[in-house]
């Protein structure tokens, strides 16, 4: 494992061994649950989860000092206690959102550390994270970082914007050139996955009285995000991808939403069944969403046309196709999984 200094652990608290860290600082978990002087940390931990749930990147606010000796540990403690609260709540939605938000926070630091004129140790440390945590070897080349094409592809395929396609990248000699910003962005998803895995693998401590109230508040918070539509039978990759993006609270383009709605309507789902899928979209508005789906279903609007699911070709041109061999030359996602003779 990477050895961490005070600075680094505050930027990348998920790299720390939680129990070890508390021990080293001379604390026990029990103290956080009982000691009134430490209540502020528990409050900060809750705020940290709350802002993550709302899709914001946590920024520690302190009343008075900008004293490093206070801020840095506070940053780490609030993270560690947030995990304790999440484990106690057992709420997967919140764990996912928290991991994603923490990944984006770390991404900002990574980017800053990679920028050429920042200090050398930070840069080396950031490169080390790429290598040790994600097994990607990135190297500096002038203002850019270069990474092997095969490594690049394994991460870049998670993005649907055209600019991430290999054809739209500077490629030379088996390497892809990236700015510090792009380098950090490239591993956001994996960073989120890494943090999520670490949280899931952590032991759940026994419940303490001092945490009960916060844990209770968390389950109320989570209710806002529950999606309980179950989509059954075989789903083509494009649709799976769209649902996944929405569940993670990522933005899905208009054509993506249209494709998803028409597909599910075609499979016999109702507006009531489909609308909740969009709940996590950053711009969700229940009324508007329902109206739009109804319109696609031909249940409202002037001409009452029921729209059909677009063809694979159309979907490809919108960059929403993620064909696998199972797609086997079908021309419309509706045909997916149906045996052809």
């Amino acid at each position: 494992m990477i050895s961490l200094g005070q600075d680094e652990i505050a930027k990348y608290p998920f790299l720390a061994e939680a129990g070890q860290y508390l021990n080293d600082k001379g604390f026990t978990l029990e103290q956080f649950a009982t000691d009134p002087d430490l209540k502020i940390i528990v409050d900060k931990a809750y705020e940290r989860i709350e802002s993550a749930a709302e899709g914001k990147i946590y920024n520690l606010k302190t009343d008075n000092s900008s004293d490093k000796d206070i801020i840095l540990p506070l940053n780490v403690f609030s993270f560690l206690i947030a995990i304790v609260l999440l484990k106690l709540s057992g709420l997967n939605t919140l764990i996912n959102r928290f991991s994603l938000a923490e990944a984006r926070r770390a991404e900002k630091f990574l980017e800053r550390d990679l920028v050429s004129d920042s200090n050398k140790t930070s840069e080396e440390f950031a490169i080390k994270i790429f290598r040790d945590v994600f097994s990607i070897t990135i190297k500096k080349a002038g203002d850019y970082f270069v990474i092997p094409i095969s490594d690049y592809l394994q991460h870049a395929v998670n993005f649907h914007e055209l600019e991430w396609k290999l054809v739209n990248r500077h490629v030379e000699n088996g390497m892809v050139f990236l700015t510090p910003h792009e380098s950090a962005r490239l591993i956001r998803k994996e960073l989120g996955g890494y943090i999520g895995t670490k949280i899931r693998a952590a032991n759940t401590p026994p419940m303490s009285k001092g945490f009960e109230d916060k844990v209770h508040k968390l389950s109320n918070l989570a209710k806002k995000f529950v999606v309980d539509t179950v989509v059954s039978t075989e789903i083509p990759p494009c649709i799976e991808h769209a649902i996944e993006a929405l569940n993670k609270g990522e933005n899905l383009s208009h054509s993506g939403r249209f494709m998803l709605a028409t597909f599910l309507l075609g499979r016999g789902q109702t507006v009531d069944e489909i609308a909740p899928l969009f709940k996590n979209a950053p711009d969700y508005n229940e009324k508007i969403t329902r109206y739009q789906i109804k319109q696609v279903a031909g249940e409202t609007g002037g001409n009452r046309t029921k729209y059909a699911c677009p063809s694979c070709e159309k979907i490809k041109s919108n960059d929403l196709c993620f064909a696998t061999p199972d797609c086997d030359n079908i021309i419309n996602p509706m045909q997916f999984g149906k045996k052809r003779l």
Binding site: I149, S150, L153, L162, K165, L166, N168, F322
Partner: peptide, 27 residues
């Protein structure tokens, strides 16, 4: 080659590269 490990999705992107498909003017 270092490409042997790639899955279908990744190969799909490699194909677009080789066929020069989906290039954007910005690039």
């Amino acid at each position: 080659s270092s490409y042997n490990q790639l899955g279908s999705k990744e190969r799909g992107d490699l194909i677009d590269y080789i066929m020069f498909r989906r290039a954007i003017p910005e690039r």
